[in-house]
Simulated assay, not measured.
Amino acid sequence: MTSSRPAPHGGGSRASSAGLAVAAVARRLGVAPATLRTWDRRYGLGPSARTAGSHRRYTPEDVARLLVMRRLTLEGVAPVDAAKAALEAGVEELEEATEEA
């Protein structure tokens, strides 16, 4: 029987092509998985893809937007405003957020 868990951070192509699971993204951002689900539901900051079983899979761009959201909320910006800024962030800002992380 095969495991339904994502591959470890060993860099396997299967894990990166399918995207990152909620738990992996939550660890990277330092937030609870429930926070990511809430940001998805309330503000539309969800993953670009889902598996057949409706499991969230985050792309690098999705993670970059979440990094912007997290940075802004830590700076004291209201979550609704931080989410708007994250959704409107351009490529340059997303690349910068990824480099800072």
Rank of each mutant, 00 (worst) to 15 (best):
G46E: 02
A78V: 14
H55E: 01
T73C: 12
T38E: 07
L94I: 14
L94A: 15
A86G: 08
E93G: 11
V63C: 03
G19A: 06
A34N: 04
V31W: 01
R65D: 03
G30E: 05
R14N: 08
E100V: 15
V22H: 02
A83T: 04
G76P: 05
L45R: 02
A32T: 10
S54T: 05
A86S: 12
P8E: 07
R56A: 03
W39Y: 14
H55T: 05
R65H: 10
A78G: 13
S4N: 13
G30W: 07
R41D: 00
R56T: 02
A34V: 01
S13V: 14
G90Y: 11
A101T: 08
G90E: 08
R57M: 01
P60H: 13
L74M: 14
A23N: 06
S48R: 11
R28I: 07
R41T: 06
V31Q: 00
L74W: 10
A89W: 06
L67H: 10
R70H: 10
A7F: 05
G46M: 02
L45Y: 02
P47D: 02
H9A: 12
P6I: 05
L94E: 14
P8C: 09
A97D: 03
P79W: 04
R57Y: 04
A89H: 07
E96M: 13
A26G: 02
L74T: 15
P6M: 04
G11W: 10
A101P: 02
P47A: 13
V63M: 02
E61M: 10
V91T: 15
L87D: 12
T2P: 13
H9S: 09
R70C: 04
G46V: 01
A32E: 09
P47F: 02
G19T: 09
E96W: 14
P6H: 10
G46N: 03
V80P: 12
T73P: 08
V25P: 01
A85C: 08
T35W: 06
P33N: 10
A78P: 09
S3H: 09
E92Q: 14
H9P: 07
R42F: 05
D40T: 06
G44Y: 01
D62H: 03
A83E: 01
R71Q: 12
P47S: 14
T2E: 08
P6K: 08
A85R: 13
R41N: 04
G11E: 09
A18W: 05
H9Y: 06
R27T: 15
E93Y: 09
G46A: 07
K84I: 15
P60T: 11
A89K: 08
V31D: 00
A34R: 00
W39T: 08
T98Y: 07
